[in-house]
Amino acid sequence: MVGDRRSEQVSSIELEGPAERSLEEAAMQGDRRAIQALWQCHRRWVAAVLITYKPRSEDLEDLLQDVAMTMLTKIHTVRQAGNVRAWLRTVAINAARAAGRSERSKPQQRLDSEFNGGAPAGAAGGSTLIHQTDRPSNIAVYESNDEARRVMRLAESLPDGYREPLLLKAVHGLRSRQISEILGIPEATVDTRVSRARRMLREQVGAAAAVADTDSTTSFATP
């Protein structure tokens, strides 16, 4: 099988050019090992796209599984090799938005324990139920430290067109050329958007720090 040999070679996101094209062709023809190899290449940045568009409460792992399943069952519908990255991004955005629609149709209240890492209901604020808008960001699940959590929360508020390339740029090994293929925009536009997004983020981090400083000063001044 054509994917046998290639799947051994593909172990990272670095796959590019003719090797990627031939792997995509094999996958589109139903070669399951080629599909598996492609998934291994792309799943890390797919996670970044999902984070960009998914509702806070939706489980990233569940959405990744949805995208993986769609890739397995629908990749033959991609019209030509070279379009797989863009197609996969669309699949990920659709999965995230479908989760958003599902989220909106759910009751607006959840048990505390669901969002407090299993802490007893009522432990946070003494109430058994909390409103959706009150709960902590689910983004904490994939943040490794407080600084990452703080910056990610601020990045969440950037416009989609800036947030997505910014997060993709934070995926290890993903370069502007690959991001341009994923987003379907020129490489120079990727660089411009990333640099603007970084400035916006710097300003937001600075503003947040200024507010925090003011708050701490106020609390010291209060007897």
């Binding site: 890390r44 797919v46 399943m69 397995l72 910056v151 995926v171």
Partner: peptide
């Protein structure tokens, strides 16, 4: 800021690495 984002995305990427396709397509 970039280091913080990379740190967060690395954790998400590690989670993604655990997601494989169903058994019939595993190498």
């Amino acid at each position: 800021d970039a280091a913080a984002l990379r740190s967060a995305l690395r954790v998400a990427g590690d989670l993604a690495d655990r997601i494989s396709l169903p058994a019939s397509v595993d190498a």
